[in-house]
Write a protein that binds this DNA or RNA. Structure first.
Lengths: 245, 245
DNA sequence: ATCAGCTTTTTTGTCGATATTCTACTTTGT
DNA sequence: ACAAAGTAGAATATCGACAAAAAAGCTGAT
């Protein structure tokens, strides 16, 4: 779990292995919600989709399962974790606990370097378009990256790579929910304004205010998602009847 | 990620796969400190030690690496994470943050069922011998299990399987450090008394008191380990010279 | 119709062999 | 003697075939 750890991506220099490449692509597709139509991930299916042998694919799937992004049952393969409103609530709860602690520690141990990285992240986020002009139903993947980078920059000074890793993991889960329920049109929302307030209070050293803004930000997002869930949204269109185990 | 997840062990009913079996054994050996003499885990070595093909072994190693129990570099295989005093400090810090939150939530949402499980866990722990009579240098593995079960019972009512998973992960890491530095004789310590106080205050609903006792418990353990580190303890005897990367 | 038990098909998990990459050592040129 | 380049050996990563298990399909009796 990640994976309480930095998933390296092996970006710098070292040639990536096939397993890592499949892992990366699969992970991206999962977080983008591109696989929500599948309920089970058969290895043969993954093999033919990403063009790699069974062994590296299995390794990638094992990593993702250990990270909590997939489920696994011995002799029964890998499956997408079912998305439910109660699970989203639990997720959000946990996320608020951990991010609050991380943000407070970050503020308490702030450095000039960290502050600069934060204003940079905010600036980049402000420049990006949330939705692409050509297809307003889907998010701009570039914006997604910058959004995640901003939230990570917030807590980067908390002095615990474990905590950062956990927050990343929860952030991954949350982004899946966000993208699942984003097919619906959605309320107008001042994303940028919220992020700006969080950053301002953080840079001011106003821990209580920053935490309040951050948690409101998360809770509002979750509330919107849950509402859409309640509206009877079901990712799987022609799903079959109940399956045992 | 790890493993913010319930590592099932596939105990009930379903026949376990070879990969899961190797995973389990390797994990046990890691936490028991039985592999501290190795710095690198060559697959061929693991294969011959646990009697399984390369594929299941690689899957097991991938899971452990995703959980943060091992390190991995593409094209360079798997290795034991180096143990350092500063890493132990960071670990303990994080652990205190998370366990405090988990314990407070557990107390805030306590149920009769949970309280009963807690007194049960304490009772079992009290009955077990910490060290085996025949070999006082090593811990009784049975006690280790019960000890872990006690600490998990404490936070079981926190209403977040994510948080429980994270705490488990950190607990695994900590137990590795504990067992590494336990070759040295060690101070006399009233383990049982500490655990009893934690449980009592918890059952009384005294959140502040329970948290204080729990964090002291963790910090004392860490302090003892770090002291032994400082005494120049080095797990790897005839280690080779510096390696790049 | 329905359900138990058998057969077929699909899918998972494992093995053995091989290609690719790294590592340590030797050679060569200055 | 030293560094760059090359080379033999070892380890990692991957493929393709196969065994084992589960799921789906089928038959026949109640």
């Amino acid at each position: 779990m990640t994976n309480g750890n930095t998933e390296p991506g092996e970006s710098r220099g070292g040639k990536s292995t096939l397993a890592s490449s499949v892992y990366q692509q699969l992970r991206d597709d999962l977080l983008r919600g591109a696989l929500e139509s599948e309920t089970k991930l058969r290895v043969e299916w993954v093999v033919s989709r990403y063009g790699a042998g069974a062994s590296p694919v299995r390794e990638a799937l094992n990593r993702l399962a250990a990270e909590g992004l997939l489920g696994r049952h011995d002799q029964r393969g890998f499956f997408l974790m079912p998305a439910s409103a109660t699970e989203l609530e639990e997720l959000t709860r946990t996320r608020c606990w951990l991010e609050e602690r991380a943000l407070r520690e970050s503020i308490a141990h702030r450095t000039a370097e960290w502050e600069e990285q934060l204003v940079l992240a905010l600036h980049r986020l402000a420049r990006a378009e949330r939705r692409l002009p050509e297809d307003p139903t889907t998010n701009n993947p570039e914006w997604e990256k910058l959004h995640r980078a901003f939230h990570r920059a917030l807590i980067a000074a908390c002095r615990s790579h474990w905590l950062i890793g956990f927050c990343d993991q929860l952030s991954d889960q949350a982004s899946r929910y966000r993208l699942i329920s984003q097919s619906a049109p959605g309320v107008a929302r001042d994303d940028l304004g919220e992020h700006r307030i969080i950053a301002e209070r953080t840079l001011d050293g106003d821990a209580d205010g920053a935490v309040e803004a951050l948690l409101d930000h998360y809770r509002l997002t979750a509330a919107i998602c849950i509402e859409r869930f309640a509206q009877g949204y079901d990712p799987r269109a022609g799903a079959s009847k109940a399956r045992r185990r």
